[in-house]
Design a protein around this nucleic acid. Structure first.
Length: 930
RNA sequence: GGACGCUUAGCUCAGUUGGGAGAGCAUCGCCCUUACAAGGCGAGGGUCACUGGUUCAAGUCCAGUAGCGUCCACCA
């Protein structure tokens, strides 16, 4: 093996081999063995590229997938991409714009061909990045939401819902994006607080009584052109006399009534509200209640239309606002303008201010679908992890609104509805079916609806459409419901809830059993990663590394707000003066796993990646050590007597514990605990102790062949098992090393075998051994005791010491007997003398192992004052403990109330502390007397 | 307005039915000991945001306060 760990040189080739050999494939449905285990990849946008959130979630999915595959389950990770209607259309439109064209120049069909072309060329970015991450989905089953099969399912669902009366068409106020010229759903509108104004306007009464007027307050004065009433609270005493009268709307001169409605808050503003039913959701409701006319004053571009007086026609809504305010001011109608903070609705894609707009759209009647979906979670059939997300789910589901599913876009699933010239609507799987079903004569002209469906409509069918629905396939039987959905809380409403509703409706089954909600990855100081903040990390850059100049260029190019570039550059240069090192995929994956605790947000810390890169290096070097000692040696693979040392038995026992904890943690989706467990075992037990403990055996001329063989056998087989344990987390390094290690192990290895389809290690009860664990703990305490004194007394680690033991029990003697070679070597001792009872000892520094005292004679080595100081420090600590224990035990309430076991424990601690103190005190006196 | 979450070492975070405060990174000291200086050995560092309550016992349970954050709804 190469002397240093270099991830770049091992990762690519591993992956290619896995994929070519078809190792990611599910066992299938024909003659499946093992329990089905299925994960659905939340299909990333086909326009997307891998961001940290993807990296994080996909790492988790891959850990689960690899783990279950090795456990022998019939494991399928279903992969695919989403056509992402708006995002994709925007990408291709932008390209056209760059050539000075619009999509309208091409026409619908050509534009769609262009998008398909784009998809063929550039749509594979994210899936190739997924491969860099080492993910192991079944690529042969990869689907795209616009594929024929999926499209068929979409049509089928639409038609069936329509037949069941759950899809309807209606003219309503919708969220209109005037840039995209499409309706969007409530969820796609973001309400951000922005600074604005509140204009107070005096509307004169129509009866011309001169002084009679009413002052209304508004944040959108331009909508006054569409006002059809002014409303006050029915109980508002100030305005009782005005209710039922009319006012003369300025500028237009239209007469509109003053109405009374509970909705009005008398405390707010002037207590009078102008009502614009065609351009405000609340006003719309009020308009319906009071049968007010609805005057639409905007074009689809949000410019003033012909309803507006001529002077304002064609003006953009914000220009119109300015001019109308000027006009009102000139006319003396404007009373005052206050600064006012308000929530401005913006489209999540365009950032454009959303306009409530009256249009015909398709809706899904949601109530009937929502009920079973709520039940599925309430009954515990579907489980959120962490559990509290079900509250978020319930809250939304109980207040759910009908879903506007039509979009005025070109890219997407075309709505399967046709219109005749009389405006009749026919819904069906295709035009032919519609004609047959409704017995339409051949000369009836039908035109298909121009709109496409919300992208989330097709995503909602993901759990069953990817399994072949509407055909009754074996996959549908085997992999619905899937095992766990791994996703972020940001799409619980968009996607998770809708999948539950649709899957329940069309298969009668739940789509998944567990929903594991991950935290959101933020930057190191807790800010959301965004292009405009310039704090975005690209997972691929953490894998391959990137030099500073490239990183700066990447972060400052293509910015919406170029003026931020300088700041971002400065920040980047400060944070990454050397760019980003190449940490490799395994280190990144391990980092993601280790950070996956139950918290909501995760602040990404580069120090962690570096630490785990070091961990990879540690594994690499430990493996080199093992191979160095086994590759050309007898490891007992072909028989031969094996004698295991205490250390050999111990590391196996430790491994069983680690394995148990790891599997428990994975079962609870605690990837952080799982990662920590294997990290601790690998570094602190296997490397720090076990490898050191093998040296006294392997380098000992007096050790027998059977002993050496036993240790080599343990070395290679523990490492082999450890690699399999680590594989789900770190696929590349484990595969690479395993190929060298496995042939030396007890496994039946054949050339070309891959670790990823080996069985996961199983707990071996025969290898558990509490006695051995305790014995090695004793050995460790012995060695650490001496190392402490060396460290604190500045005794070179290389200097051999002679020590004396006092107060040695028979158990201590037994342990010394079985571990003498380990202790001599690791503590660097050249002699151990056991003092007989009452025998005089020279002045010594002391370490305690339980009741036993290890004495290091001070003569020529240790300074008297230094040792006294050391003892004083130790005693100080013990005395503090002692005080606490005594206090507790002398508390009558504690003694009479606490469980006996707790009291016994306290007593034992007290006795132990007292004994240690007594020994130190004696030492102190001896040394002080020198 | 409603809901949820967070506050533990200088930094990033664990802490699972309440029973002697942990990890990684950073810091300090010693060490190039034949797997590893991306390392080894050792050390220092915390009134667990605050107040009160329950309890023999609270980082952990309850109530409240402060600060931060997210989601939903929304007063024109």
């Amino acid at each position: 093996m190469d002397k240093t760990y270099e991830p770049q040189s091992i990762e690519q080739q591993c992956y290619q081999r896995w994929e070519e050999e078809g190792l990611f494939k599910a066992k299938g449905t024909d003659a499946p063995t093992g329990n089905p285990y299925c994960i659905l990849l939340p299909p990333p946008n086909v326009t997307g590229s891998l961001h940290m959130g993807h990296g994080f979630q996909q790492t988790i999915m891959d850990v689960l997938t690899r783990y279950h595959r090795m456990k022998g389950d019939n494991t399928l990770w279903q992969v695919g991409t989403d056509h992402a209607g708006i995002a994709t259309q925007m990408v291709v439109e932008r390209q056209l714009n760059a050539q000075g064209k619009t999509r309208h120049d091409l026409g619908r069909d050509d534009f769609i061909s262009k998008i398909w072309e784009w998809k063929e060329h550039s749509g594979g970015t994210i899936t190739s990045q997924m491969r860099r991450l080492g993910t192991s989905p079944d690529w042969d089953r990869e689907v795209f939401t616009m594929d024929e099969n999926l499209s068929k399912a979409v049509t089928e669902v639409f038609v069936k819902l329509h037949e069941d009366g759950l899809i309807y068409r209606g003219k309503r106020l919708v969220n209109w994006d005037p840039v995209l010229h499409t309706a969007v759903s409530d969820l796609e509108v973001l309400n951000e607080e922005e600074a604005g104004h509140m204009w107070h306007m005096r509307y004169p009464l129509a009866d011309g009584s001169g002084s009679g007027s009413i002052v209304v307050a508004t944040t959108r004065p331009e909508t006054m052109l569409g006002d059809t009433a002014v409303a006050v609270h029915p109980d508002d005493e100030r305005y009782q006399s005005l209710i039922g009268k009319e006012i003369k709307l300025p500028i237009t001169g239209r007469l509109i009534p003053i109405i009374a409605d509970d909705y009005v808050d008398p405390e707010f503003g002037t207590g009078c509200v102008k009502i614009t039913p065609a351009h405000d959701f609340n006003d719309y409701d009020m308009g319906k209640r009071h049968n007010l006319p609805m005057i639409n004053i905007f074009t689809p571009d949000a410019k003033m239309n012909d309803e507006a007086p001529e002077a304002f026609r064609g003006l953009d809504r914000f220009d119109a606002r300015k001019q109308i305010v000027e006009q009102l001011e000139a006319d003396g109608i404007l009373v005052k303008v206050d600064d006012h903070k308000l929530k401005v609705p913006r489209g999540d894609r365009t950032g454009a201010v959303i306009e409530p707009y009256l249009t015909d759209q398709w809706y899904v009647a949601i109530d009937e679908l929502a009920k079973p979906a709520i039940d599925a979670v309430e009954s515990g059939e579907i489980r959120f992890v962490p559990e509290n997300w079900n509250k978020t789910y319930y809250q939304w589901m109980h207040n759910i609104q009908d879903w506007c599913i039509s979009r005025q876009l070109w890219w997407g699933h075309r709505i399967p509805a046709w219109y005749d010239n009389d405006g009749n609507i026919y819904v069906g799987r295709n035009e032919e079916e519609v004609r047959t079903k409704h017995s339409l004569a051949a000369d009836v002209v039908l035109k298909q609806d121009d709109d496409v469906l919300d992208t989330w409509f097709s995503s909602a069918l993901w759990p069953f459409a990817t399994m072949g629905w509407p055909e009754q396939t074996p996959e549908l039987e085997t992999f619905v419901p899937s095992s766990v959905l791994v996703t972020g809380f940001d799409i619980i409403f968009f996607w998770v809830a809708r999948m539950i509703m649709m899957t329940k409706k069309f298969t009668g089954k739940i789509p998944f059993k567990d929903i594991y909600i991950t935290g959101l990855i933020r930057d190191e100081s807790g800010d959301k990663m965004s292009k405009s903040k310039g704090n975005v990390l690209d997972p691929i850059d953490l894998i391959d590394g990137i030099d500073l100049e490239s990183l700066v260029a990447k972060r400052t190019s293509g910015m919406m707000q170029p003026q931020l570039a300088a700041k971002i550059e400065k920040r980047t240069r400060k944070q990454f003066p050397e760019g980003i090192h190449a940490y490799g995929t395994d280190a990144l994956r391990f980092t993601f796993a280790a950070m996956a605790s139950t918290s909501r947000d995760i602040n990404f810390d580069m120090g962690r990646v570096e630490g785990y890169r070091n961990f990879c290096n540690k594994i690499w070097n430990a493996s080199r050590f093992v191979l160095m000692n086994t590759e050309t040696e007898d490891t007992g693979r072909d028989g031969g007597e094996l004698v295991l040392s205490l250390a050999d038995k111990w590391i196996w026992a430790q491994f069983q514990q680690t394995l148990t904890e790891f599997e428990k943690a994975l079962g609870e989706y605690r990837f952080d605990i799982a990662a920590q467990t294997v990290y601790e075992f690998t570094w602190n037990q296997f490397c720090d102790w076990y490898l050191e403990l093998t040296k006294p055996v392997l380098n000992n001329d007096e050790a027998s062949d059977a002993e050496k063989r036993g240790t080599r056998h343990t070395l290679i087989n523990v490492l082999e098992s450890l690699l399999r344990l680590l594989h789900p987390l770190m696929p590349f390094i484990t595969e690479t090393i395993w190929e060298r290690v496995a042939p030396l192990s007890a496994l039946d290895f054949k050339a070309g075998d891959s670790i990823m389809v080996q069985p996961f290690p199983a707990v071996d009860a025969a290898k558990k051994d509490e006695q051995v664990l305790a014995d090695i703990e004793w050995v460790k305490r012995f060695i650490v005791g001496i190392r402490n004194i060396r460290g604190e007394m500045d005794i070179a680690p290389s200097k051999p010491l002679s020590v004396l033991l006092r107060n040695v029990s028979s158990d201590d003697e037994r342990r010394l007997g079985i571990s003498r070679t380990f202790i001599d070597r690791l503590a660097r001792l050249d002699a151990i003398t056991i003092l007989a009872a009452g025998e005089q000892a020279p002045a010594s520094a002391t370490a305690l192992v339980g009741e036993m005292e290890i004495l290091i004679p001070m003569a020529g080595l240790i300074d008297k004052e230094a040792e006294l100081a050391r003892i004083a420090k130790a005693m100080d600590k013990l005395e503090k403990d002692l005080g606490r224990f005594k206090g507790k035990l002398s508390n009558e309430k504690f003694v009479s109330n606490a469980p006996p076991a707790v009291i016994e424990k306290e007593k034992a601690k007290l006795a132990d502390t007292e004994s240690q103190l007594a020994k130190l005190k004696a030492q102190q006196e001896t040394i002080a007397a020198l």
